[in-house]
Amino acid sequence: MRLKRKDILTIEDLTRDEIELILSTAGSFREVSEREIKKVPTLRGRTIINLFYEASTRTRTSFEIAAKRMSADAINISASSSSVVKGETLKDTAKNLEAMNPDCIVLRHPSSGAPDMLARFVKCPVINAGDGSHEHPSQALLDLLTIKEKLGRIDGLKITIVGDIAHSRVARSNIYGFTKLGAKVNVVAAPTMMPMGIEEMGCTIINRVEDAISVADVIMILRVQLERHKVPLFPSLREYSRLFGLDKEKMERAKKDVVILHPGPINRGVEISPEIADGPYSLILDQVKNGVAVRMALFYLLLGGGRE
């Protein structure tokens, strides 16, 4: 089987077979990162541009390491140091990068849909590394890989996503990803952070956090994205933490073998209390490890095939 697409823009676009191909390929790549020489020559001579219009440590580093472990030349461009600050449009930036003949562009952008636009302007593959409140496909794929690794399956699991659903690209990608692989997704948030019609994406809204936690096999905690709130969507962090934060008390209702995911970075003490974040249920560091493998798989599947 082959990934017959130029770009990875959304999980919504991917079929179940494609997601499973990516996950099984990523599974093979996990071993590479455990070698002493963590480098394979597969993408030698290929150029991968990480174009980041938003601050990011985890995702950018993960893509960079993935590229380097495959021997590609990874070039990082961040908005603060580029011509973006001089007012160059995304289209012009795209045309200029295109002229340098890269083999892949990884884009992180604050505007939803920017990767779709970039993909129209450039011939090389584009990987969406998070666009506005839209999607973050590689994050969802690494979450799926982590769950599959830990629990052995996705099909039939109950996933609860807690937090700022309205502004979360991770939530959107994960709702598509988990439902496509046969899991049942419940979402819970303060109504001010619950977007209209989210249930059309195939998930169910649960009103009380406690109820959503007690049914879950997997709990995914989202970061409160204060930077995207024009006006505060809740009265105070203290109140949010008490009502929606995952703490020891709420975890008492959870299943014994529940696992917890958090896409990071964590606001410790806000959406998750430190003892839970560092506790035995937490898969946060497995997620980071799998992130590299998933991104290696994406590079391999997009660049390893034939050129037209």
């Binding site: 919504e12 939803s112 849909g113 666009d131 506005g132 409140s133 839209h134 999607e135 690209r169 959107r172 977007p195 209209m196 019609g197 989210i198 059309e200 994406m201 024009k230």
Partner: peptide
């Protein structure tokens, strides 16, 4: 309307655009 850029509803939610 605030900083909305399209109709509020399921399409806006799916596209991650403010409604």
């Amino acid at each position: 309307s605030s900083e909305g850029v399209m109709n509020e509803g399921w399409i806006a939610t799916k596209l991650g655009l403010k409604g």
